[in-house]
C-alpha cells in the first residue's frame, strides 16, 4: 500500500508526542519529522515529499506569510484547534476530540488522497488497453490482436508500449500474471490454452 508522509509542526512537546502516538496507529501513515517552536520546516519541504502537515494554531498563524506566497501548501495542512473557528486549511482536528474520531478523520483523508495519487503513479488501463492485455495473455501475437480488433499492427504496438509504461511490466508472462490477479482473465482460461 502507499505510504503518506506526515510532518508535525507543533510547538508543544506534549501535544506533538500525543499526535505522533496516534498517527503511528494508522496504517499507511509515516511520520517523517517533528518540528517544535521556531524549527525551520519550510526548508524541509523543499527537499522532501510531504503529503500532510499537522500544525498547531499558533504555528499556523506564525506561518501566515508562507501561505500567502505558497497557497498550495494549505492543501496539505491539518490544523489542530482548541475550538472550532474559521480557517482555510485543508482539514482540522479539535484538541478535545477522542482517539477514534481523529483516526477516522485521518483515514478518510488518506482514502481520498490515495485515489488521486494512484491515478498518477500507477495509472489505470483504459478499456481498450485492458482488452489488449487480455488478448496478450491468451497468447495472441500483435498481428492477431490487430486483426481481431480491426486495428493496424502499429496501433497495437503503441498500445503495448503505453501498457508497459503504465504498469512497469514488459514481458508477456508478467502481463499474464497481472491479468490473472486483476481478474482480466481467469487462470482456467490460461491453463486451457493449447501448448505452443
Amino acid at each position: 500500500m502507499r505510504i503518506s508522509g506526515f510532518i508535525l509542526v507543533i510547538d508543544s512537546y506534549v501535544l506533538r508526542s500525543g499526535m505522533v502516538s496516534i498517527l503511528n496507529r494508522i496504517q499507511g501513515v509515516r511520520v517523517l519529522k517533528e518540528f517544535g517552536a521556531g524549527d525551520p520546516f519550510p526548508n524541509y519541504l523543499q527537499s522532501h515529499p510531504v503529503d500532510y502537515i499537522i500544525m498547531s494554531q499558533s504555528e499556523f498563524d506564525r506561518s501566515h506569510e508562507l501561505f500567502i506566497s505558497k497557497p498550495e501548501l494549505l492543501e496539505k495542512i491539518i490544523l489542530l484547534q482548541s475550538s472550532h473557528t474559521q480557517h482555510n486549511a485543508h482539514a482540522s482536528i479539535l484538541l478535545m476530540e477522542d482517539k477514534e474520531s481523529i483516526i477516522q478523520k485521518i483515514q478518510n483523508l488518506l482514502a481520498h488522497h490515495k485515489q488521486s495519487d494512484s491515478e498518477n503513479h500507477f495509472m489505470k488501463l483504459s478499456p481498450r488497453e485492458t482488452t489488449i492485455v487480455r488478448h496478450i495473455s491468451m497468447g495472441l501475437t500483435n498481428r492477431q490482436i490487430a486483426e481481431k480488433l480491426f486495428l493496424s499492427a502499429h496501433t497495437v504496438m503503441t498500445h503495448r508500449k503505453n501498457i508497459s509504461a503504465k504498469l512497469g511490466i514488459k514481458s508477456v508472462s508478467g502481463l499474464t500474471v497481472y491479468a490473472i490477479v486483476n481478474n482480466i482473465i481467469t487462470i482456467e482460461e490460461v491453463s486451457s490454452l493449447p501448448a505452443k
Binding site: K170, S171, S173, G174, T176, V177, V190, S191, L193, A195
Partner: peptide
C-alpha cells in the same frame, strides 16, 4: 498442471531478466 508451472517459471525468469 504443466501450464501453471510454466506460467510461474516463465514469470520468474522474465522477472529476473527485467
Amino acid at each position: 498442471s504443466e501450464k501453471e508451472v510454466s506460467l510461474v517459471t516463465n514469470f520468474f525468469n522474465d522477472y529476473k531478466k527485467d
